Simulated assay, not measured.
Amino acid sequence: MRTLLLRTVFVLALPAVLVAVWWVASEDSTDVYWPPLSTILETFPDVWTADRLTGDVVPSVLRLSGGYALAAVVGVGLGTVIGSYRRVRAVCEPVLEFLRAVPPPVLVPVIMLFAGIGDTMKVAVIASGCVWPILLNTVEGVRAVDPVMAETARSYGLTGAARLRHVVLRSASPQIFAGLRQALSIGIILMVISEMFAASNGLGFTIVQFQRSFAIPDMWTGILVLGLLGFLLSVVFQLVERRVLGWYHGLRAATRRSP
């Protein structure tokens, strides 16, 4: 209980300090683009009603979930194949290095030509950026599978899907989750960017509309909602990661305790 309390204090300490600094620094502000934090917080409940949350936040989360899930499936699937076979890796590596160097926002106009301006385009933009950290981390994780472990599994007749599941993916899972964590932050950024192009709802669309109509406090509330969404998704990701990688964290803790 004491450990949990201390961890909670450490987690909340820095945000509390930053909010306090923001409050004090902006309290006497008369700049139209830098309103006091008190004004932003007073505006918040008037702007983000249940209808706006349903009409803007929910569609954004659904697009992010769709693009992120697609990137995870493609990234882990292709990464496993490329990491398992040296010849495939030698053929694909130059192309992968070229494609991952292209910033995903640059692809928005190109994707719009093929996918239109609907949700398909937004999901494709999110997936196109999220896939690279997942793919590359999966490749490196599969390549780093312990040869002794792989040989032992082969000796016991563990082949095919069973070997892939219990040896390859399990061994590579810490690095795969590292790629998934990186992809989550990229996905949130691309979610906002994709909604700034020919959209009629979503967080990115709403924030831009507030900015264009000079509703600056409303715009800042949208930025706060975006930050809170990122924080909640990070917490959910950590819970899932700790559950899936419980064996890994337990092994590391045991290693640290051993003399």
Rank of each mutant, 00 (worst) to 15 (best):
V9W: 10
L164M: 15
L135R: 14
W132S: 00
R212N: 10
V123P: 06
P36M: 14
S194L: 08
V236E: 02
P174K: 09
V11T: 14
I207W: 00
V32D: 05
T221L: 05
A215Q: 13
V123R: 01
P36F: 15
G55N: 12
W48H: 03
V88N: 04
V81C: 09
I188F: 10
C92L: 14
V125W: 00
A20G: 06
L135A: 07
A72L: 13
V225Q: 01
G141P: 01
I134E: 00
H249N: 07
L136M: 14
G118I: 09
V81N: 05
F214M: 08
A144P: 01
F44D: 01
S213C: 03
Y68Q: 00
A253H: 07
S155A: 15
C130R: 07
L96P: 02
G141W: 00
D56A: 12
M1V: 15
G250E: 12
R242Q: 10
F114M: 08
I40C: 01
S84D: 03
R256Q: 11
L158D: 02
V9S: 12
A254T: 11
I176A: 04
D51E: 15
G250T: 11
A127H: 04
P103L: 06
V125D: 05
M149G: 03
L64S: 08
G230S: 03
I193V: 15
L64C: 08
L169I: 14
R86D: 03
T39F: 05
G77H: 04
I82W: 02
M112L: 15
R2F: 13
A153Q: 04
F10A: 11
K122Q: 10
M219T: 06
A13K: 00
T8R: 05
A178K: 09
E241S: 02
D146P: 07
V148H: 01
G202T: 13
L229I: 14
V148Q: 04
L229D: 01
V142P: 01
L12K: 00
S173F: 04
I82K: 09
V139I: 15
R243G: 13
V32Q: 07
V192Y: 01
R86H: 06
L107C: 10
F197S: 09
A199L: 11
R252N: 08
N201S: 15
E97K: 00
S60A: 06
G187Y: 04
M219F: 00
P94Q: 10
E42R: 13
G129V: 09
A50Q: 09
E97Q: 07
S213G: 07
A254N: 05
P259V: 14
W34V: 08
I216E: 03
V240T: 04
M112Q: 12
R252H: 10
V125C: 03
R165G: 06
G79F: 09
V47Q: 05
